[in-house]
Design a protein around this nucleic acid. Structure first.
Lengths: 231, 231
DNA sequence: AATCGTATTATGGCCTACCAAATACTGTAG
DNA sequence: CTACAGTATTTGGTAGGCCATAATACGATT
């Protein structure tokens, strides 16, 4: 977060990731992309074996994921992959709407052409990913679209919050984007955001961003309630 | 966060807090109320001695606080108490404005008299605390005012986010409320929120909530920039 | 005396091993 | 078939040790 930015150019890029961080990423990955399913128990010693690290590391990783909301800890029973209920998911989408709306408004009010250019680049990357049926790419590029929205107006904290919340609904995201017509409507809605920003229309940008999230939320709700009874 | 709410009434309030949780609260407390100052190093083995727990527990606690943003981890140097720069504080206030504004609007749109009653109770508690010069009470009751705002419309996730962010600026909060005239203006602004909610004026409630946070932010900024050069 | 290596220390990162207590499982006696 | 005792599993927590790195102190060399 903080630090001397001017040194960044010369600083040797050391991948000095600690074992802990590597393990954290691995487990988070495993949860996010469904290798561990919601409700699965995460037995410490099993994880040790699978990751090839000690309990110390595994425990710290579990603690971290717990505070991220990705794992829940049943007292005396141990950690499980957090289930996300429909109510919580809706709230997360709502928060994203509020924050992304705020960011979009700020972008519009700044009125800088670079922002528009950067957003359009992300947007066309999304369209390409849809065309190539590259769903992982859609997710990545959608993230970078929103990251641009936040970081271009220096809202790193808000971006962090959105990011944190997003991992919890990640598998929902990957289901919503596969929905019929989402490949058309999604980019169209995002395009409206960009248009409003280009016009310098803060109110419109905010509304467009909120609409986009609301649409995603509606799809997610439909997907979730259609799938819950099946299990 | 999740869990069977209907059992909550009967469940015996077990203090079955794990040692880890106790230690976590202690250290967080210590940071929030200034026993550990920003920039202070948090040496694992020292903390073990002070808390009377093992390194495992201390490390898990540090990890947790790190993900809360209260502790920063310098590579190869270890954890320190996070410094909050003015820019970050402003962003936190801004996010609170967005979320509390959202909650206020929802409260207004719901139009339930119980909400108004609960808010007024908190508000008068705040006034009493100010009158008695009980600053800790002001903080507590202000928190519960906002908690009401969020939980009366079942926005537990958003409340969690606000709470998480708030601990990071806690000492700022305790400085802003001591400011001249804050004892008058603060409650007056919050009263406007309640009034708008009573009228069912969503837009007004949102605006009033955002104004209140904005005022706090302005004071915090003044306090911070007045204090930074002094150090 | 200034500088350049070299020990020492402090500390984090990581590991193994151990114990106690709670929980889940299992097999047997009545 | 049930009740109960015993056993395995697993978490929560402790103890202590090893290694790598960074900083500091110290000594040697020019």
């Amino acid at each position: 977060m903080s630090g001397a930015l001017k040194d960044a150019a010369i600083r040797v890029e050391r991948p000095a990731k600690t074992l802990r961080e590597l393990a954290l990423d691995k487990v988070r990955e495993a949860i996010v992309n469904g290798y561990f399913r919601p409700g699965d128990r995460l037995v410490e010693r099993d994880l040790c074996a699978q990751l090839g690290v000690s309990r110390t590391v595994v425990r710290e990783v579990l603690r971290h994921l717990e505070s991220e909301g990705l794992v829940a800890n049943l007292p005396n029973k141990g950690p499980i992959v957090a289930q996300l209920d429909i109510e919580e998911a809706k709230q997360i989408y709502e928060i994203r709407g509020a924050l992304e709306g705020m960011a979009a408004r700020l972008c519009a009010e700044r009125g800088s052409p670079e922002i528009v250019a950067a957003l359009e680049e992300s947007l066309s990357a999304i369209r390409n990913s849809y065309r190539d049926n590259d769903m992982a790419g859609v997710l990545t590029n959608t993230s970078s679209f929103y990251q641009t929205l936040f970081t271009m107006v220096d809202r790193h904290v808000a971006w962090g919050v959105v990011n944190l919340l997003t991992v919890r609904i990640n598998h929902l995201r990957s289901m919503t984007i596969k929905t019929e017509r989402r490949g058309i409507e999604g980019p169209a809605q995002m395009s409206k955001i960009v248009d409003a920003i280009r016009r310098g229309d803060g109110e419109g940008a905010q509304q467009a961003a909120m609409d986009h999230v609301a649409a995603a939320s509606a799809i997610a709700e439909a997907v979730l309630s259609a799938q819950k009874p099946a299990e």
